[in-house]
Computed example of a mutant assay.
Amino acid sequence: MSRPEPSSSQASRNNARIYITGGASGIGFQLAKVYVRAGCAVTLFDIQSTEAAVTELSALSGAIPVRAFVLDVSDAASVREVFDQAAAEAAPDVVIHCAGICMAAPFDEIGDDAYTRLININLLGSRHVAAAVLPHMNAGSHLVFVASMAGLVGCYGYSAYCASKYGVVGLAEVLRIELAAKGIDVSVVCPPEVETPLVVEERKSRPRQTEALKLMAGTLPLEYAVAQIRRGIDRRRFLIIPGKRARGLWFTNKLLPGCLTRRLADFLVKR
């Protein structure tokens, strides 16, 4: 079966319907602002309160009313129920899954419950969102996972986070193949560190070795990162890596089978 080619990006249309998980803050909220300003109908999903986000988005000039739903991505049954409810009124053209958590600590300092919780939210949560929303997506629609450079390159203190994000990248790779025949595009976003509330909080306690390794990919301002993410989504790229330094790290790691980046990582950790 041949794959339908979209005549233009769904996200570029003024009437595009955009679902964003983790939309109350950080990358998700900044993406919501970009799409609302473009005239898109945005629906937010978050376990946090979305009241402030909806108020700010609704105040933007020409904004279409913004919907919001409480969503715990770690609860598969609840995720299905919430997406069924949202899609009953308006099914999505683009789904951007941003919800996730981060934790930076040496492997032997992460307890069973903390490790399991992170995997449940980041990896299984991605699975639950995809399983719940795909029945409501038609040919020409687009499913986007926000993973991390930590899903492409290992980092000290990220044993749980890297495991979850490598899994998200793998999930996206498989869904890209499986959904091609249905005309549904899949993308995975792997940003380096981005200035968000999540990162600000993480910096308070993460190991110095983690801090050093972050230098390899760099840190991006939120608006700059989101502008590049939006461009990649509009162009329907599969792998979206915002930031020249991050793309260089990925390319070097791919070109030299990890040899150079592993040596550099070892050097930075031992400093």
Rank of each mutant, 00 (worst) to 15 (best):
E5D: 05
S8F: 07
Q10I: 09
R13Q: 13
N15E: 14
G22N: 01
G22P: 03
A24H: 01
G26Y: 07
K33C: 12
V36N: 02
V36L: 04
A38F: 00
A41P: 03
V42S: 08
F45Y: 03
S49G: 11
T50N: 00
E51R: 15
A53G: 08
V54P: 09
V54I: 12
L60V: 07
S61C: 11
G62D: 02
D75Y: 06
V79R: 04
E81M: 05
V82S: 08
Q85D: 14
A86Q: 10
A88P: 08
E89W: 01
E89Y: 11
P92N: 11
G100E: 10
C102F: 00
C102E: 14
M103T: 02
M103P: 02
E109C: 07
A114W: 03
A114K: 14
Y115K: 09
R117G: 03
R117K: 15
L123A: 15
G125C: 11
G125D: 04
A130E: 01
A131W: 02
P135D: 08
H136S: 07
N138Y: 00
F145A: 04
V153H: 10
G154Y: 08
C155M: 14
S159T: 14
Y161I: 05
C162A: 14
K165D: 07
G167W: 07
G170L: 06
L171N: 09
L171I: 06
A172N: 02
A172R: 01
A180P: 08
A181M: 02
V188D: 05
C190H: 09
P191T: 01
P192F: 03
P192T: 01
P197S: 03
L198P: 00
E202S: 04
A212I: 00
G218P: 00
E223L: 05
R230E: 15
R230Y: 03
R231M: 07
I233P: 12
I233A: 08
D234T: 12
I241S: 08
A246D: 07
R247C: 06
F251I: 15
L256A: 11
R262S: 15
R263L: 13
D266G: 02
V269T: 13
